[in-house]
Computed example of a mutant assay.
Amino acid sequence: MDTDRETPEERREMLRQQQWKGNPAGNLIDSFNRGGNGNLVDLVGGLGWKVTGVIILIVILGFITYAVFFR
Rank of each mutant, 00 (worst) to 15 (best):
W49N: 14
L57P: 06
A25F: 14
E10D: 10
G35E: 07
Y66V: 05
G36L: 14
G48Y: 04
L40G: 06
G36A: 15
T3D: 09
L40C: 07
N33T: 15
K50H: 08
I56R: 07
A67N: 10
E13C: 03
A67D: 10
I55E: 01
L57M: 10
L61R: 00
G22S: 06
D4C: 00
F70G: 10
R5S: 15
L47Q: 05
I58D: 01
G45Q: 04
V68Q: 03
N37F: 13
G46Q: 06
I55M: 10
G26L: 01
L40T: 10
S31Q: 10
E13P: 04
Y66M: 04
S31L: 12
D30H: 02
G26H: 02
I56W: 11
Y66L: 10
P24E: 01
T3H: 07
G26V: 01
Y66R: 05
D42V: 04
G48S: 11
D2S: 07
E6G: 05
T65V: 13
N23P: 03
T52W: 00
G35K: 03
A67F: 11
N37W: 08
V51H: 13
E9S: 11
D2E: 00
I55S: 06
T65E: 10
F70K: 13
N27I: 02
K50M: 12
V68N: 00
P24Q: 01
T3L: 12
L43E: 14
E6I: 11
F69M: 07
L61V: 06
E6S: 11
D2T: 00
R12E: 00
V68W: 02
T3V: 14
G62M: 04
L47M: 11
I60P: 01
I56Q: 07
V59Q: 12
P8R: 01
Q18K: 06
Q17V: 06
V41Y: 11
